[in-house]
Design a protein around this nucleic acid. Structure first.
Lengths: 297, 297
DNA sequence: ACTGAAGGTTCAACTATACTGAAGCACAAT
DNA sequence: ATTGTGCTTCAGTATAGTTGAACCTTCAGT
């Protein structure tokens, strides 16, 4: 690769303006510099770009090279533009990881916002469960939406912002045996508990103990499956209230009589402490908090 | 555009090899040169490409820039390859103009030859009629296939190669009135003569006189139309024998009894004198002459 | 045919830029 | 601790691009 973008730019300027002299003015150089640039390029490519019989005129090969040069310059200018955007503080990509137990509506608002062409940052969202969330955050995500239930507090280096509190409910189908009377530890042990599997890869083998031990445990991959399984009467289990509000209202599912049967938790928006937020991250945080506080928006 | 292909190449080498040092060896430079190149590029783009907290590691923005850089380099390498081809004597494009009265089979052989991916030159063929052929040749075609009928000889600067001779025949449909007896000047004038229109743009108005004057003249745009018109009995006219060999054999068309009613002409392959042929032109000439001499090939 | 203006080239001197090599620092592995 | 690898800094050097003046050619106008 013994030619430069500068040479290609000069060639393109000559081809466009139609003369060495005009190209020179445009590039704020002296004509002889253009001559030199062109001869150097011709030597580098081994191609006679200009016919110098009289006034220099592009040869057919020259035209061909100009076409290719335009392709190179186009890509180079695209890079330049992208770099310009990056240098103004927009990240090329913003990686967000969200706990699957949280409401997705505010996130959808963010996705819409980032789909706007005026937002140059590309948004990447990963839905994880339990430890999988922090694992992915540690492996490079910029923002994490944590459910905040089993949040140890020993995780330092995090800057947290509270999201509206949510409720976990102990639920079963209305015609499930456990729904007929107050739940005891013994009655509970007779039935299958539905649990959403931890999506962490590190703790593949370590099965997280349920809130209250149960003989039979069914692991599910996400809360949507869990909701379906609960509706099908396959077992009982904890599930975020916002996911079952409709079927609770309709009476298909019921909150079990147990203590506790409700558990309020405090979701958190986490970013890395210390390093300031880029413009993309800031926009995401602002948009998400606004959407979470005013779910109707 | 204040960065160079060289800088992008260095960045790509670092990204690919995973270290400044390996990139330096690959580029046959000293490590400090790589450092310098990278810092210069970062300054030019205004983007922190590497995280220098510890061992330099590409930032996410850096990865993004690398992606774009690969795009630029890919195009640049394509240009380099194309230039390499051009510098070995292959033209980027070979323009051939052919008189529409000539047999097209040898030309088709050439087209097949140039369709081979190992032939980098792009073949462009224009079919013209009469003066249109030379006009296009003058306006830039590299090779002309002339019918040689009205070749003035005053056209200098041409290098000619003879093609197999052909015959013009004075033809009409078998049931045309002129086919019934020997043709006289008077009987000829009573019937329409079919003529292929000159495709030259310069002589739009100048209608070329027919071989023998006729009262009614029908101008057609090509010999295929002329053949159809002859078959339809729309008139009489001169047409190359090879275009009507089949219908003469079947008896649908006949050669008129006139003198002359046959005219042997000597097609020529013309190139510009003085400047040697490029590899594409040479290949074309060789292929065409071979195909013309051995039409079965 | 002459003339002047504009475009292009050549050349030597200059300037800016990239490269080298030595020295030094940071980190990782032993 | 110690060694080795990888990166950076810096000063000197080499390379490559830029300038400006002189010259040549072409083209348009007289």
């Amino acid at each position: 690769m013994d030619f430069t973008l500068d040479q290609l730019g000069a060639l393109e300027a000559i081809a466009r303006t139609g003369s060495f002299a005009r190209a020179a003015t445009e590039l704020r150089r002296v004509p002889s510099a253009i001559t030199h640039t062109v001869t150097t390029l011709e030597a580098a490519l081994g191609v006679a770009l200009f016919d110098r019989e009289k006034r220099p005129r592009l040869t057919r090969d020259g035209e061909h090279v100009v076409e290719l040069a335009r392709g190179v310059l186009e890509r180079a200018r695209a890079l330049e533009r992208a770099a310009g955007v990056l240098s103004t503080g927009w990240e090329s990509e913003l990686r967000v990881v969200v706990d699957g137990s949280l409401p997705m509506d505010p996130l959808m608002t963010c996705l819409r916002r980032f789909a706007d062409p005026s937002v140059p940052t590309v948004l990447r969202v990963d839905v994880e469960y339990q430890d999988g969330v922090m694992e992915r955050f540690r492996s490079g995500a910029d923002v994490a939406l944590l459910h905040g239930l089993d949040f140890d507090g020993d995780e330092r280096g995090l800057q947290l912002r509270a999201l509206p509190p949510l409720e976990m409910l102990l639920i079963a189908s209305a015609d499930h045996p456990l729904a007929r009377a107050a739940v005891t530890e013994a009655s509970r042990a007779e039935h299958a508990e539905l649990i959403v599997r931890d999506s962490s890869t590190r703790f593949e083998s370590r099965s997280r103990p349920s809130f209250i031990g149960s003989r039979n445990v069914v692991y599910l991959s996400d809360f949507h499956s869990k909701r379906l399984a609960l509706l099908a009467g396959a077992g009982y289990g904890w599930i975020p209230g916002h996911l079952v509000a409709d079927v609770l209202a309709s009476g298909a599912l019921v909150v079990l009589e147990a203590s506790p049967s409700r558990w309020t938790y405090q979701p958190q928006l986490a970013t890395r402490e210390g390093q300031g937020l880029g413009r993309g991250a800031q926009l995401f945080v602002d948009t998400l908090l606004a959407a979470a506080d005013a779910p109707e928006g």
